[in-house]
């Protein structure tokens, strides 16, 4: 029962945060909305016994990623909502219809059974402790773990290429 209550509360928090993100005029509020949704999801992970994921969710997402977002919002300034002008009603209608139909389609698809996979290979009472995750991560997934070095290198190099150099480094600027 306690779990049901916890789930109910944080599901509402997550949805409220998401909707806040969606409707807030000011991007800072959007960021805060997303942040609360992420915290709510971290709680969900704990409910699902995924402790490491919950922890990383808080550290990486709520901590690093959202900080980066807020930082960029501060950097480029919160723009004036009026600058965007009124949004055509048709756009709102289309958006809500699309989102609604999408949700309905998924729910409809899952209405029979949400999880049909076989549990033959599973562990009966899975506990996502650091140890269990590490066994998997540094066992089967080692090579994948190593391959993320490419992703991170690209992120670093790409950011440098886009933002770090001054225009004078280019041939076209020098010419």
């Amino acid at each position: 029962m306690a779990e049901a209550v916890t789930f109910g509360i944080f599901a509402i928090v997550a949805l409220a945060g998401a909707v806040t993100m969606l409707v807030a005029k000011n991007p800072v509020y959007s960021a805060v909305g997303l942040l609360s949704a992420m915290f709510a999801l971290a709680v969900m992970y704990i409910l699902l016994d995924a402790h490491l994921v919950a922890m990383v969710q808080v550290i990486i997402y709520a901590g690093a990623v959202m900080t980066l977002f807020l930082f960029v919002i501060m950097l480029i300034g919160v723009d004036n909502p009026n600058a965007y002008g009124p949004r055509p009603v048709s756009q709102s209608i289309v958006t809500w219809v699309v989102a609604g139909v999408f949700f309905a389609a998924i729910v409809l698809a899952g209405s029979g059974a949400w999880v049909t996979g076989s549990a033959a290979f599973g562990t009966a009472d899975l506990n996502g402790t650091i140890e269990n995750v590490a066994d998997e991560m540094f066992g089967t997934w080692t090579i994948v773990f190593l391959s993320t070095v490419m992703l991170l290198t690209i992120a670093a190099v790409g950011t440098i290429a886009l933002a770090y150099f001054t225009g004078a480094d280019d041939d076209e600027a020098a010419a």
Binding site: Q91, V94, T95, V98, V101, F102, A105, I106, L108, A109, G112
Partner: peptide, 25 residues
């Protein structure tokens, strides 16, 4: 961009519905 995204989303929904329909869901 948003127009394209809407196009993608609508087409994506159609694909899902089409899949469910043909797949006998």
């Amino acid at each position: 961009v948003r127009w394209y995204a809407a196009g993608m989303a609508i087409a994506g929904i159609l694909v899902i519905v089409f899949f469910l329909f043909i797949g006998g869901a």
